[in-house]
Amino acid sequence: MGGVTGNGHNVRYISSQEGKGHMPVTKKDIADYLGISRTAVSLVLNNTPNSTISEETRANILRAAKELGYRDAEVSPKLCYILCNRSSEDPLYVTDLKLIERVASRHDYRLLFMNIGSTHKDYTRLEKCLGNKEISGVVLSGDIDERMLDIMERSGVPYVVFSSLEHDNVNIVEPDVVKIAYECTNHLIAHGHRRIALFSGKIDTPVHRKSLEGYRKALLDAGIPYDVSLVQVSKEEDGYELCGRMDALDIPYTAAFCVNTLIQFGALQRLKDSGVHVPSEKSLIGWGMTDLVRMSMPPLTAFHIDPAEKESVIFRLLDVIDGKDEERKRVYLTDVKLFEGGTVAFCRNSQ
């Protein structure tokens, strides 16, 4: 008999034969045994870099895997999620990574993770990773440059871009950012707001250009003049700084559309620190369903793509791997949902 302590509760002891018979031990078995999430088990067993799993939990998972008889099938097919020019701690991509790992696992694929930038060293890492012939397919996400695409093409490894990318002849699955930005801005307009700021990352990024397009279209359809002073940009996507800049420049506004929940969360903190009540004095809306949405006080109001539709990125990749659809195309994710949260209210100020 052997046992492993997981979260300190409901410790279960099993015989040495459990998990070692005809049915192979899975990551879910290990997760259930320890009383933790399957994502945490996957991050450890896949040796995912930059994960936030504690050393104690990591040790428990590895010990449980050994005692339960888990065997990592090196011959099992592998997919790789490659995040380009974005922090591995960005809440949007962490959420996407978890979702993609779950879907890949359901189709009996291991998911590897790689975080790269636009440096010679990173390009070399990418070439080496793709050249070892162990990866069946790649999901390429983040801010992707031409060199990365060139390396992908030359490698011959099937891949799908999961990002806004202005490029032809590439398999792309992306949220309909123009539609999402339009819905976010229109939601504020429906609540009586007319002085609506846009808090964005650098506009030369495709996703942010599309956010600006949707924002402007919503204003135009509502007969609200476009005021360039209300568009504030931060390369670092620092909502705290963007909100502070509006105050410093004395630019009046009653609401802000934030292009992601990281900016939205930062703006909320700045308003709180300034003694401004959200949402009665200022409303904030963003897009993306991340951990920040529910962790925030109040919870963030945000539009997001239905997770079930996001799973189509893996389905598309599997079709490419299997050669079921050789036509390269762009697929838009359009099933937009609203998480009500608590950061939007009807406008009480006609600034």
Rank of each mutant, 00 (worst) to 15 (best):
W287G: 00
A255R: 03
E89R: 14
D322L: 05
P175Y: 04
F346A: 13
L79F: 12
K133W: 03
F113I: 06
I305T: 00
V320S: 06
S51H: 07
H120C: 10
P252R: 08
D143W: 05
I180A: 02
P298L: 03
Y13C: 00
G2R: 13
D291Q: 10
S136H: 11
L271P: 04
I321P: 11
V276I: 15
K128Q: 09
E237W: 00
V344N: 07
H277F: 01
V207A: 13
G286F: 08
M1F: 14
S136K: 12
D122G: 04
K179N: 03
V293F: 01
N10Q: 12
Y182Q: 02
V11T: 15
V157L: 05
R316C: 07
P49G: 06
K329M: 10
L230H: 07
R102D: 15
V331E: 08
V336F: 09
V11W: 05
R294F: 03
I53R: 07
W287P: 02
H167V: 11
S54L: 08
S350T: 13
E55H: 08
I144G: 04
L126W: 00
A181E: 02
K310G: 02
M114G: 11
R294C: 03
Q17K: 14
L79P: 03
P49L: 07
H107M: 02
G142N: 07
K282M: 15
M1K: 11
H277M: 11
E241R: 14
T334A: 05
V173E: 06
S274C: 12
T301K: 01
Y93I: 00
D204V: 02
N349A: 12
T48Y: 03
E56A: 05
K128H: 07
K235W: 10
A256V: 13
I305F: 03
Q264I: 09
E146Y: 07
V207P: 06
L284E: 06
L212S: 02
D221F: 10
R194S: 15
Y13V: 00
L68H: 00
I61Q: 00
D145K: 03
L198A: 06
T343G: 09
P252M: 04
I224P: 01
A345P: 00
E134S: 15
D227C: 09
